[in-house]
Design a protein around this nucleic acid. Structure first.
Lengths: 224, 224
DNA sequence: GACAAGGCTTGATCTGTGTCAATAAATACC
DNA sequence: GGTATTTATTGACACAGATCAAGCCTTGTC
């Protein structure tokens, strides 16, 4: 089975504002099983037979985090790749002046980690913190690698996942370099309006690399 | 075989400044076959038996580009994923004011395309242009997908390739948001000094999102 | 080897966005 | 339900880095 990809589909499970989010949340509630969210997302990219699902389950452990609790702190080695089945997190680092800079937001259907730290098994600089109460499925590096050996079709899943992620990250980078503050904010507003509702403006500002005051001024100047 | 990954290894085939570049260049010269560079790079991530190599060869076509020639122009659909076996390219887009913004430089061992355009088969906004005379191996989307079906271990290769690429792109994004002009330039200088030699300052500036004059001033102020 | 074209430096000036500070509004908490 | 905390707004001001302009230096070309 080839992975079919349309112009919009490419972002479906990736960029901020996953349109399936609400449905997935309902789905989860109905079955009350965190793995359903995972398999639902996997099914969007590859077809995964039931026996393989059972194998995959054995590699993950479930964990819950309260609001403001850290999944990972700067200086730690990130031992887990986490799939968010419920909740909302921010991943950020702190610069020399003590300022936070948000790397990404993640919610239902997102994979999060300090990827560099995780893959290299060395201490990293990212903090990952729950913004809302969050439930995740976690896998260690050894198990991630073992799973990919044991269930080779997951290579395909992650290849497609990462492939799409690269597109998103390239776009965000170019936006960061080429756009003005206002363009960045309006772009986010246009493409991910739900974000603005769910996440405080201060954090949005940090994510966009702007001062919160700048966003206030943009809203004042051109919203009328 | 698991892919072993050390802290430095993670960037080896990815970020600017591939340390194997010179060796590969020599290697290529010796055997005068573009595929050697490709298989050399693949071998760094997975082990690929000879029969599979022969299969893979059938999916690629070779192409050469002269300095200043375009591999791809804005508005075109990017039909090819290109592996650079020799040369140097820039990938950039043009903003509403007609300014260029360089997305990435690529040379021996890099894969380049307008990834979004390629995967979605829709027109893209990137220009890809040869800075030096360049030789590439190209594969279409259909052949890329066919190859991944026929040689499944290539899923693994691309998964690892993309995985590393994500780390690099995340770092560049955070650098772009958190660092000052001077920090960005010094960081590049420290980690990729060869770049500064091989690529004109104007292009470096565009890559970093700075004005060329800013780089001149940085060099004046603190090099003494 | 002369001319063209491109690349680099320097100074003067302008401007978008950050910083600081004070207040108001919204939300969380016991 | 009232206080504490967080979040958003607004104004005054500062500054990093862009822009504009001019001149110089380097490289390529016939």
């Amino acid at each position: 089975m080839l992975h079919k990809l349309s112009g919009t589909d490419i972002f479906r499970f990736f960029d901020l504002g996953d349109p399936l989010r609400k449905f997935v949340a309902g789905h989860l509630y109905k079955y009350k099983r965190m793995f359903d969210t995972l398999f639902f997302h996997i099914a969007a990219k590859i077809s995964l037979p039931d026996p393989e699902k059972e194998t995959i389950k054995t590699f993950f452990t479930q964990r819950k985090f309260k609001r403001k609790q850290f999944l990972l702190q700067e200086g730690e080695t990130c031992r887990q790749l986490s799939f968010i089945s419920k909740g909302l997190i921010k991943s950020y680092n702190v610069d020399d002046n003590g300022e936070d800079h948000i790397n990404l937001f993640g919610w239902e259907g997102w994979w999060v980690s300090d990827f560099y730290s995780f893959l290299s098994a060395t201490p990293g600089q990212l903090n990952i913190e729950a913004i809302e109460d969050t439930e995740v499925l976690q896998i260690t590096l050894a198990d991630y690698e073992a799973m990919l050996i044991k269930v080779p079709v997951m290579e395909r899943y992650f290849r497609i996942l990462y492939q799409n992620s690269i597109v998103t990250k390239e776009r965000r980078l170019m936006s960061s370099i080429t756009h003005t503050a206002e363009e960045k904010y309006r772009h986010l507003l246009q493409h991910h309006p739900e974000l603005i509702q769910r996440i405080p403006q201060t954090l949005i500002a940090s994510y966009l690399g702007l001062a919160p005051e700048t966003i206030s001024r943009i809203k004042r100047n051109k919203t009328p």
